[in-house]
């Protein structure tokens, strides 16, 4: 029984690798975990995350609390959806948009000369201040998100053209 299960697993993994599905699957789950991990400290210390968001000086102070609370839970939901493979196109679009917003926010703060702590994975104000060089992490995440989004839309377009009512096979 267990050897059958093992054989099936190995066969599936080999099939994923052969058909090129392993990389997008790994990337989707990886990005999901990044967003889920990023949300943990924000959920535990929403008040401290609101402080970090205030330091960016982008949002009006009146809405910083609700934005901080919302963003933490948005990251949770997007992480769960990506890991579970549900609503992948929407989730991929949203993580891409969020990453663009993060990069824009950090860039605006750096341009203004504000020495800020990112608040991306930790709300501790004692962390290292962000620099232009440290933006490579978000840059890398953005590339991965863009690729995932493109892949998700391409896959669904291919499946539509293959199995859709306009072109039945």
């Amino acid at each position: 029984m267990s050897s059958d299960f093992g054989r099936v697993c190995i066969r599936n993994v080999c099939q994923w690798l052969r058909t090129g599905r392993a990389v997008p699957l790994g990337l989707r789950i990886g990005i999901g975990f990044v967003f889920l991990y990023a949300s943990i400290d924000k959920l535990i210390h929403p008040d401290q995350f609101a402080e970090v968001m205030t330091d960016y000086e982008i949002l009006p102070k009146a809405v910083v609390n609700v934005a901080a609370l919302w963003l933490a839970w948005l990251e949770v939901l997007l992480g769960v959806l990506l890991i579970a493979g549900v609503w992948v196109r929407s989730a991929a679009l949203m993580v891409t948009a969020l990453t663009v917003i993060f990069i824009a926010g950090i860039s605006v703060a750096l341009t203004r000369g504000i020495a800020l702590h990112c608040g991306c994975f930790s709300t501790d104000p004692g962390g290292h201040a962000r620099t232009w060089v440290s933006l490579w992490q978000e840059g890398l995440l953005l590339l991965a998100c863009l690729w995932l989004t493109a892949r998700a839309f391409r896959d669904s377009a291919e499946s539509r053209s293959s199995y859709g009512p306009t072109n039945p096979r």
Partner: peptide
């Protein structure tokens, strides 16, 4: 859904924040 979850979780959090800060500072 994220907004609903955030509001619900905030209601039971020991550091419950006012959704709109008003005269308060954000995060207090």
């Amino acid at each position: 859904a994220a907004l609903v979850l955030a509001t619900a979780a905030n209601a039971v959090h020991p550091m419950r924040l006012p959704l709109l800060t008003g005269q308060l500072q954000p995060g207090i």
